[in-house]
Amino acid sequence: MEPWDYLPHLWRDAVRSLAPEHLATLEEVRFRLDRPVLCYGPNWCVPLSKMGSAVLRQQDLDELVSIIADHSLYARVEELRQAYLTLPGGHRVGIAGSAVWKEGSLATMTDIAGLNFRRARDVKGAGQTLLQTFQELGRPVQSLLVAAPPRCGKTTLLRDLARHFSENGERVTVVDERSEIAGFYRGRYGFWLGPHTDVLDGWPKAEGMMAAIRTLGPDRVVVDELGGSGDMGAVARALSAGVSVVASIHAGSYQQLERIGFSDRGSRTVGDLFDAVAIVSRRLGPGTVEELWHAGERLWRVEA
């Protein structure tokens, strides 16, 4: 099912009545307070025409949040705290609103001002092609970092890499802090990740990686969107424990990666941790591999 299938029928029907070429490539439906609903594709944006110029009220947004959370916000507090809600099938709804702080930490969100229904993709074979390219260049991959700006297909690529390694007999543990890779929802996986994959769903990345190494004995750990120095430290510890890591990070180029230091003295960069780095963009569509790096050396670059 698509993420918009979980909308109330008025909105659902409006989305389904988009032109076929738009519906086929629809990536996001965005609901924003006091503005019309907009649909986004790779290189287009159209308003939901069936809704006319109707703008969204606060009540509409609150009701939408309640419906997609199955009217059980208490069970989704952790997701709300991270500004998203997961839907069945691995889809997710990003939420914009005001943060509520309690005792110095983010407790939840209120005054919802925007919702982004985003379609999760499952592209089989993308990861395999990437690994084959490294192989053909004579540099087999142990630890791989996928670097890209948002909405460039990092998670889709990681998902396929996890599946590929698992289907080739490796024991893979996916640390899925935001339920994006496995699409775990109410005890079920939204995506097939291979026969040898375990998922630590909802675990913070650093703690999840350490728990995986201690208890699950993985050959490879897959983790999405590395952020703070704690995450990088956990990657370093996993690598020193002999576990390969496949991860993604927000960065537009290798040079940007080089600027992300993580050790106490800032003497090591993220690029030092991983032997292989793929720079991805959405220039020719999501998942466009721009450059491949290995041990600090650029191996390949896409033709301009």
Binding site: S66, D70, H71, S72, L73, Y74, V77, A107, T108
Partner: peptide
């Protein structure tokens, strides 16, 4: 109010 807040308030 059911379902509209965290577990402790529920």
């Amino acid at each position: 109010v059911l379902g509209q807040s965290s577990a402790e308030f529920q």
